[in-house]
């Protein structure tokens, strides 16, 4: 007989582990990645591959510099950096320079995640921070040269200089934007590798839902964004579907905003978080005429510790103290 285990209760545990969750997220991102390859060509594999590889390498290098033995590093490896790299890669467009994913991943992993304490300690979603870092540092590359999906180009609309479908939607140029079906499938849309095909993202989201990695609440974000755009635009419901189907809202709502570390841990807190995300996204989108999902999630991520500090659920049976007087008399 082997040596007996000694540990605190409970002695049985659920079979869910951090690794499994992260692998599930990777699997959920695969459809979007595949559709990216279909739409934008094999360059996507290089970009996403570089992002993932450099994210993993960055984590290993950081830990080696911190003098952790290789055995421990391998044991600690929980695929979080794979998810970060994958998300960052999918958030770039297919024509970026090769060094962008490397720089972005390195920044995301080292500055945002490892320096703050590694897995579970990042203050914002690392992939998001990496994207914003690239967006600010290389705005010329990031904002220009967007490729349109190669399957079906829409005649007469130039989609090469950041004029995403969203921009047209927000300006109200409904004749220039693709149909809702095109927006949903991502055919003929300019955008990042992973964000164009909403159908694939939705499929990934449903997979995560079935695997119970996320719950249904990100839907609030998507719906509130659409509805608030409608409200701002004077209750013109023509804006509803195009505004939620264009831009990076699906990718942001399903994969970015739901990052465990940077979303609230209470039910009410989560509602507040998603509603605020939706309202601010819609408002800023209309004000700036551009895509702001990543910036809004970034800012809201920073507010999460505050939400969690002040929205603490009352313990079971808490309301009793107030009833004290009546309880003594009656009951």
């Amino acid at each position: 007989m082997e040596k007996l285990l000694i540990s605190n209760s409970p002695h049985i545990r659920s079979n869910s582990t951090t690794k499994r969750i992260m692998i599930d997220v990777c699997i959920a991102l695969l459809p979007a990645f595949l559709m990216g390859i279909v739409y934008f060509g094999p360059m996507c594999i290089l970009i996403v591959g570089l992002a993932v590889l450099s994210a993993v390498l960055a984590e290993f290098c950081y830990k080696l510099i911190m003098k952790k033995p290789m055995r421990v590093i391998l044991k600690e490896f929980d695929y979080t950096s794979v998810v970060t790299g994958l998300l960052l890669g999918l958030n770039l467009h297919s024509t970026v320079a090769w060094y962008l994913p490397i720089l972005g991943s390195a920044f995301a992993i080292i500055v945002v995640k490892m320096i703050f304490g590694g897995t579970g300690k990042n203050f914002v979603n690392p992939a998001l921070a990496g994207r914003i870092f690239l967006f600010i540092s290389f705005s010329a590359i990031m904002a220009n040269g967007w490729a349109t999906t190669s399957i079906r180009n829409i005649g007469g609309v130039s989609l090469t200089t950041g004029a995403t479908a969203l921009g047209s939607v927000l300006k109200g140029n409904f004749d220039k934007i693709p149909s809702n079906l095109d927006l949903f499938l991502g055919t003929g849309i300019a955008g990042c590798i992973g964000e164009t095909c909403k159908a694939a993202l939705l499929l990934g989201g449903i997979y995560l839902l079935v695997r119970r990695v996320i719950d249904w609440k990100p839907v609030i974000y998507i719906l509130v964004t659409g509805l608030w755009t409608v409200v701002i635009k004077g209750f013109d419901f023509n804006y509803f579907l195009p505004s939620i189907l264009s831009g990076g809202l699906f990718l942001g709502a399903i994969f970015m905003a739901t990052d465990y570390v940077t979303c609230p841990n209470t039910k009410i807190g989560t509602y507040i978080y998603y509603v605020l995300l939706g309202v601010i996204t819609a408002w800023l989108r209309v004000r700036t005429g551009g895509e702001v999902v990543s910036f809004v999630i970034f800012v809201m991520n920073l507010c999460v510790p505050l939400i969690d500090r002040f929205v603490v659920p009352k313990p079971f049976g808490y309301q009793k103290p107030e009833k004290k007087k009546s309880e003594k008399g009656g009951n």
Binding site: S7, R13, D78, G120, N265, T270, V312, P313, K314, F316
Partner: peptide
């Protein structure tokens, strides 16, 4: 408890998934 029944995994970093708060019968965090 036999092998495979008892938990043998070492604790890793909290990823703040919030499952504990969702499951807590006393509604704690």
């Amino acid at each position: 408890l036999a092998k495979g029944e008892a938990n043998e995994l070492e604790p890793t970093a909290c990823i703040s998934c919030g499952r504990c708060a969702q499951a807590c019968p006393m509604h704690l965090m």
